[in-house]
Design a binder for these strands. Structure first.
Length: 420
RNA sequence: GGAAAGGUGGCUGAGUGGUUUAAGGCGCUGGACUGCUAAUCCGGUGUGGGACUUGUCCUACCGAGGGUUCGAAUCCCUCCCUUUCCGCCA
């Protein structure tokens, strides 16, 4: 959420930012609501001050044995007026808050300006494309022939997009999760969290999923809960309404993620390319405003380290203003090369939210002056599994249909070096 | 699922309708005293919002939301959460 005071004092910059984002935000309407709110507050608080004074004098009158009935009638009328104004104020405040909750974050000053994904610059890349002396086989065929997963049976019990892993395939999922968590906790300084996989409205609003993206999530309305689309939601909101004493905080968490993918029906439907349930290891940082930019760069490197250890060719792109996510101020995507798909697959999205989520979730710290201020939040996938599994399978395949496992995974696969 | 007791500042803990303007204690912090430390004494220590003369005033906040009243931390209603006991259960 943006600070209404910031909008008031930087109106032109906010308007420009929203245009660069292709976001339709009526900034003038926000300012009108803000002016109305402040007028009402002044009016109603003046009345309350008067009422408080008179009520106190009634207490004194009773003590002195005087009759307060005339004054009581008068104050009752004031009370009626106060109720009216209070209700109008509540309405205006609710409208303003709602409008702010639907307004995306300001892109950071370093975010490149651009229209859509075609304007995203490539920041760097690592490794190089594998050269296979045979036609690469798609992961869905490899998975079926090696019996690593059974997508038909997954669809039978839950629907398409709910993969079911078998045997060594299931173990590979578990091995990757364990490998990534160990790397982040033992070498990158993150503390592991095992959070709830469902969250309430407040948490979903805190990180920005609600109110705008409700239809992207699976809901359990009878309990007022949603299945989490990312560990970012529980791990960020665990500090909601708190004043944090020690910063920075680094957390990593494995969770399954649930996404309805409502807007992408019919796209990337084959195999594990785009699924409704997937495993992911997430990294989340809580920092001061001064260090967040640097911490964001470091977190992105932590995600890249996973891919380097697995020996996978990747590139890092930076999202331009037109492609930036709703809550993010700056974002790097990491993409893996998949030879049989003949394209890059996004496996990580590393974002700096500045104080946008912290203001929504009310997460603060005390700055050098001892004043409370909003912290900055940063998070990124470290990394998401299905497309990582695709890349491992398609890049490491042999002409006989077997797949070499990366050496870093051997200890986690009970010494197994090859899927054959 | 049933029963009971609770929810008050960073922590602890009083407060059953009107100098409560939330006592007292702990902690933190500034000062005084002091070879040093400790102890002691004095002062300051919540959050959001609004206004303007930027330093003050006003306003709201005692789990959340309603209600009664001139006036609610206090009385009433609904909900949430915590603890303990019972039941069920991986």
């Amino acid at each position: 959420m943006l600070d209404i005071r910031f909008i008031r004092e930087n109106t032109a910059a906010v308007k420009t930012a929203m245009i660069n984002r292709n976001a339709e935000v009526d900034v003038e309407a926000l300012l009108v609501l803000d002016r109305r709110r402040r007028t009402l507050v002044s009016e109603v608080e003046e009345l309350k001050a008067d009422r408080n004074k008179i009520s106190k004098s009634i207490g004194l009158m009773i003590k002195e044995g005087k009759d307060p009935e005339t004054i009581k009638t008068q104050v009752r009328k004031m009370g009626d007026r106060i109720s009216e104004l209070d209700e109008e104020l509540r309405e205006v405040v609710a409208q303003l808050r709602e409008a702010l909750l639907y307004s995306p974050n300001m892109p950071s000053e370093t975010t490149p300006i651009g229209k859509d994904e075609n304007d995203n610059p490539v920041v760097r890349s690592w490794g190089k494309k594998v050269e296979l002396d045979f036609e690469p086989v798609a992961h869905w065929d490899l998975g079926a022939s090696l019996n690593l997963f059974d997508l038909e049976r997954g669809a039978k019990i839950a629907g398409s997009g709910f993969p079911l892993f078998i045997g060594r395939g299931a173990k590979l999922e578990r091995a990757l999760i364990q490998f990534m968590l160990d790397l982040h906790t033992e070498e990158h300084g993150y503390t592991e969290i095992a959070p709830p996989f469902m969250c309430n409205d407040t948490a979903m609003t805190g990180t920005g999923q609600l109110p705008k993206f409700a239809e992207d999530m699976y809901a359990v309305p009878i309990d007022g809960l949603y299945l989490i689309p990312t560990a970012e939601v529980p791990v960020t909101n665990m500090y909601g309404d708190e004043i944090l004493k020690e910063l920075p905080i680094y957390h990593t968490a494995y969770t399954p993620c649930f996404r309805r993918e409502a807007g992408s029906a019919g796209k990337d439907t084959r195999g594990l390319l785009r699924v409704h349930q997937f495993d992911k290891v997430e990294m989340v940082k809580f920092t001061t405003p001064e260090t967040s930019a640097e911490e964001h760069e470091k977190l992105t490197l932590d995600a890249e380290r996973v891919l380097q250890k697995l020996g996978l060719h990747y590139r890092v792109i930076e999202l331009c203003t037109g492609d930036l996510g709703f809550s993010a101020a700056k974002c790097y995507d990491i993409e893996l090369w998949a030879p049989a798909q003949d394209k890059w697959l996004e496996v990580s999205s590393c974002s700096n939210f500045n104080d946008y989520q912290a203001r929504r979730a009310n997460i603060r710290y005390r700055n050098e002056d001892g004043k409370t201020a909003f912290i900055h939040t940063i998070n990124g996938s470290g990394v998401a599994l299905p497309r990582l599994v695709i890349a491992i399978m398609e890049n490491n395949q042999n002409s006989d249909g077997s797949i070499d496992l990366p050496e870093a995974l051997w200890p986690y696969m009970g010494g197994l070096q090859k899927l054959a």
